[in-house]
Amino acid sequence: MQTDLTINGHTYALNADQRTTLLDALRQHLGLTGAKKGCDHGQCGACTVLVNGRRINSCLTLACMHDGDEIVTIEGIGSEEDLSALQQAFMSEDGFQCGYCTPGQICSATAMLEEVKAGWPSHVSDSLDGKPRLSDEEISERMSGNLCRCACYPNIVAAIRSASEASS
């Protein structure tokens, strides 16, 4: 079965088993190995990519369901030579160690900051009024779908805080 996927602005013709998840399509078929497989069941967030601007677990969706969608992976967020502000901040705050969860963390954070801009509340927001302030507690809660066993959480929070302060 062929599916046309739009990833990081490029169109890819995917010919793969229908059972192929978006994550496996990226990693096994399209050479985009930035998204990681940590659990394959939506329980770790290492596979996070953006679909139509929103962060999702690419392991829990089939590639064949995404023709026509705009998919962005870590490779589309910023290259080694041209890192995004968040990627830079993860570097300077040491927001990673082994690096395996990192692309997912950064994709997740990228979309999370947009969610905050759109006024989405979180579990720890005092009010649902649509003006969340990005405290450390808010960042932690909103990033809790991305596990990190090296446990860089304090540095991840610091990186997101500094990137978001720099941009505002």
């Binding site: 939506g42 967030g45 996070t48 929103r54 962060r55 999702i56 677990n57 829990l60 969706t61 997740s108 979309a111 999370m112 969610e115 509340p121 979180s122 579990h123 927001s125 649902l128 009024d129 649509g130 909103r142 809790s144 779908g145 991305n146």
Partner: peptide
């Protein structure tokens, strides 16, 4: 929902993760 059924917003936000809630 936030205005009239805040309970529902709260329950949803207490569940899963940002990524899962998006799907």
């Amino acid at each position: 929902v936030r205005r009239d059924y805040p309970l529902l917003s709260r329950a949803l936000l207490a569940g899963a993760s940002g990524q899962l809630r998006n799907k």
